[in-house]
Amino acid sequence: METLMVILVGILISIGTYLILSKQLLRIVLGASIVGHSVNLLIITSGGLKRGSAPLLGEKAAGFADAIPQALILTAIVINFAVTAVVLVLSYRAYKSFGTDDMEQLRGNENE
């Protein structure tokens, strides 16, 4: 399962990177979002999968899933949301101000 997840993460990161390298702002935001998801999956995979029950002491189970990656991911998800919002609004504003969402046209002047 871990190996499968790692391969999935690799594929998702490849796709996300390819999107980030494209020149449309929206694609870049989408790509960053995908990379964010895949990194979350990578973190939870690194803690070991399907071992023990959910990290709730009330469950009275013999073992619990690793809680640290979960705590890390929980913050990461929320921050990811905020970052996506900022980047999205930034690109939205860039489009409104400059009339284009093509990164190659947004590169500014020579010797700025």
Partner: peptide
């Protein structure tokens, strides 16, 4: 996936 991996909060 988070459900499968026993992470209800996530």
């Amino acid at each position: 996936f988070f459900v499968i991996f026993r992470a209800p909060d996530l």
